[in-house]
Design a protein around this nucleic acid. Structure first.
Lengths: 335, 335
DNA sequence: CCAGGCGATCGAAGCGCTTCGACTCCACTG
DNA sequence: CAGTGGAGTCGAAGCGCTTCGATCGCCTGG
């Protein structure tokens, strides 16, 4: 491996000069800079990450903790992760991938070993165990999600309350008066991963405001689960004409089952989904939906991190405004 | 941050002794060990990653390059990535997440900066640009996938030829004589990501052997694409009774369309999928399928890496044997 | 014409850890 | 009882980089 010293020798300058050329922290004459840069090129020099980290106590690495549960919301997670990684690169950072498995211990480990300059946590629960450790560690951190207590933390998330409200508003505007909400698996609510509950809150509030009746049912993904959930919904509320689905794995089964039951979408029933764009457009009926802005969330989180590391950061909650795209799955209630 | 020296002082030993307690590279008396371990506990010491990397030229980090294309095969990628990360942790490694975006430059960067001890490449193409750089860098590497030239490389992958053959064998055994293969998007074949082609090769070979006619059609995901592909298939080969699908995003559309056309699965048409277990079990018809062993691939790759880093490695290609699970989507041809 | 200042560069002191050689006991062996 | 060797410990020398003075010209203003 080529070292700084070798570059310095090759360029006929001191090591510190090369370092300053690289960092730009002191002024360097044009001629020297060029000579050094040429040497770097010719020798194929890359600074050693470990040495740099040791000397500067900056690793240029951001740790990303993704949930272990691979069974849910996977594409969104992946999209966020990729957005984080690529955005990080544009700011000169690399991303360390941590799975939820280690749990809170990971926070301690990363903070303790100075493996990363900052952390981004995904899938944050309302009372997340990692938060106290995070605060205590003093490490820069940004959450994707919204815990109960955001004091001293920067958070980025979709405004799920507004999302829920938006869906109800759309359906109410079309004349729907009985709405069923097909939610995430019950486990998601039990874990108190805020987003699911916030969506329901938003839905409830707007429903009250607009005089719409709402029935909320969690649902595991897949056909079997959806079938029984749907049966119970119609059992309890035969007059249901609108559905709000916040569960990727339930979208297609729902459409399919409705079709099988001879309920036409959107003539007889309207369906609004809260899901990634791709799911909405690739479904058997092009779905009116609120997209989950995975890219924006990932990018936003990294930008907050970078800002904080540069000392420009603010502790704030950044809620992305939902956007509802009308497609072919919603329409006015039949007279 | 607590340092080694502080621990040493606290325990009343020299720094090197603490280091040896940690690494176990020299024998330490039980009493000293206990004293040191206690101090470590009490002070909450964590070795500094950068310093360790610098001194030992080992980072305990494995770089994982995942493809950038977030539009395809995402859950499998994610599953592999998570498997890699968790397996790596059990061996004391962390995982650095690199996206395809940087391309070959990433290989140079990681190797040059000694940011990672080894690399795992996913989504390897037949003539992957990264391979020459990888060989040249001398860094330990394991591929998930199979390039044209595997000399000097360790590869882990599902045996897609055998997979294809297995599907044909199953269908042929049930009496099917005309089979349509719904493949990945055309772009996948154009990129020459080996797996898709290898599957088709395996299918063709076994078809020839068993006297089955095969029609292969690439297909973008989604309903629209599947509909037109299906129409063309029946146009060309009205006698088709068996389908092999290797495209997650086409599975559900296919089932749906067949149903709409009044073709019952499995009575009139049999469908075999090559897809993750979850997709197969959650589809509207429980699918006979060959699972993509994402977990095993991720785990296998890490284990190869660890073995190589420990000097026990061998340059070899590890092809996982496919397993076909019979479910409800395949049956004998009607008389 | 000289003090003062600034731009450009260098040297050296670490950053926190690993590791090698050396040293000290002490239990054996012959 | 001297000699030998292994177990246990220590000190010091780096690993490759950043960064803080310090130095050295050279330009400028008074």
């Amino acid at each position: 491996m080529v070292t700084l010293a070798e570059v310095a020798q090759h360029a006929g300058v001191s090591a510190s000069t090369v370092s300053y050329v690289l960092s730009g922290k002191r002024s360097i004459s044009a001629s020297t800079r060029e000579r050094v840069e040429l040497s770097i090129q010719q020798l194929g020099y890359h600074p050693n990450a470990g040495a740099r980290a040791l000397a500067s106590s900056r690793t240029n690495i951001i740790a990303l903790m993704v949930p272990l549960r691979t069974d849910m919301y996977v594409p969104v997670m992946m999209e966020i992760a990729i957005a984080v990684a690529t955005t990080a690169r544009t700011h000169g950072y690399d991303v360390l991938l941590l799975t939820g498995e280690e749990g809170p211990a990971a926070v301690r480990r990363i903070a303790g070993s100075s493996l990363a300059d900052a952390m981004i946590l995904m899938d944050v629960e309302l009372h997340d165990e990692r938060l106290p450790l995070l605060r205590e560690s003093g490490r820069t951190a940004v959450l994707i999600g919204l815990p109960a207590d955001t004091a001293g933390l920067t958070c980025v998330d979709l405004d799920f309350e507004a999302t829920g409200a938006l869906c109800v508003e759309h359906l109410a505007g079309l004349g729907h008066r009985e709405i069923a909400v097909i939610g995430e698996a019950a486990a998601v609510y039990e874990r108190h991963t805020g987003f699911a509950e916030r969506t329901v809150d938003g839905i409830r509030a707007k429903a009250q405001e607009t005089g719409v009746r709402v029935l909320h049912r969690p649902c595991e993904g897949g056909y079997a689960a959806m079938a029984s959930t749907l049966a119970r919904v119609y059992d309890e509320r035969p007059g249901t004409t609108g559905f709000i689905v916040q569960n990727e794995a339930a979208v297609e089964p729902l459409l399919n089952l409705l079709q099988q039951q001879g309920r036409a979408v959107p003539e007889d029933v309207s369906v609004v989904a809260i899901c990634p764009e791709q799911v909405a457009t690739q479904a058997s009926v092009r779905l009116t939906s609120v997209a989950i802005p995975a890219q924006e969330m990932g990018r936003g989180a990294v930008e907050q991190v970078v800002a904080k590391l540069a000392g420009r950061g603010t502790d704030e909650v950044e809620l992305l405004a939902p956007e509802l795209t009308v497609r072919a799955s919603t329409g006015p209630v039949q007279a």
